[in-house]
Nucleic acid binder design. Structure first.
Lengths: 116, 116
DNA sequence: CATGAATGGAACGGAGCCGAAACGGTTATT
DNA sequence: AATAACCGTTTCGGCTCCGTTCCATTCATG
């Protein structure tokens, strides 16, 4: 038993959430940045630059730059892997967890308002 | 009876759709552009630059530029209003309808794969 | 008509992201 | 110890989007 969602509802949901995000004038993350952030917070750690680049099928600099941006917003943090100092481990932050949580709440709220 | 969606499912859904879009390396619309496109295709016409700017709470040039970009991609088209030649009416295109339809299908497909 | 309001667009400088390539630091291999 | 492989970052030029401001056209109002 999976979620039942018709195409018109799916599109309406996306519109409502997008409108809310645009109007909120919040951090304004790129599609890529959002995908990275959600992956960090939903998929099990550890997360590395290379691993994320592979998962999104983008180049490493894309990940680095996205982490720069989101790091400045305190949504994620970076730490050298003590076991293999070539690696950088990406970790969650309190602010990031809050951001993700709020975003989820917006989606849930908008989905509850969907017409049948 | 509305859609039942838990926060974890909402976030997972957004992640999966975002990942699919990033990996697809498609037209790569901005959040704003997507919100505009969906509004044009979901809300009843007529659509004007000023009307869209008000609905998204952004400035007119934002709409104009987004229409420039999406017009070049043939996702929307512009026509002068014959009744009031100051207005520009934004209309749908076959390519835009296909794009929106395909996007809706992606959301539906990802939502069907969601774990309970 | 003449004036003012309203509409969409253009111009400007600034900021952010892009892809491709090259780079320094770390670990593995020989 | 020397070399190669690996990892993340930085650099470069180029492109897009941004906000603000100003402009041309069109309509409403006296």
């Amino acid at each position: 038993m999976s979620i039942q969602l018709r195409p018109s509802q799916a599109l309406r949901l996306w519109q409502q959430v997008s409108l809310a995000e645009v109007r909120a004038k919040e951090p304004d993350l790129t599609e890529r940045q959002l995908a990275i952030l959600l992956t960090i917070y939903l998929d099990p750690p550890p997360h590395t630059v290379r691993g994320l680049a592979g998962k999104l099928d983008v180049s490493k600099p894309v990940i680095t730059r996205a982490l720069d941006t989101m790091g400045a917003l305190k949504l994620v943090s970076r730490h050298r892997d003590p076991n293999d100092r070539r690696n950088v481990l990406i970790k969650r932050t309190v602010e990031g967890a809050l951001f993700v949580e709020r975003f989820g709440d917006v989606v849930v709220a908008k989905s509850a308002e969907l017409p049948l």
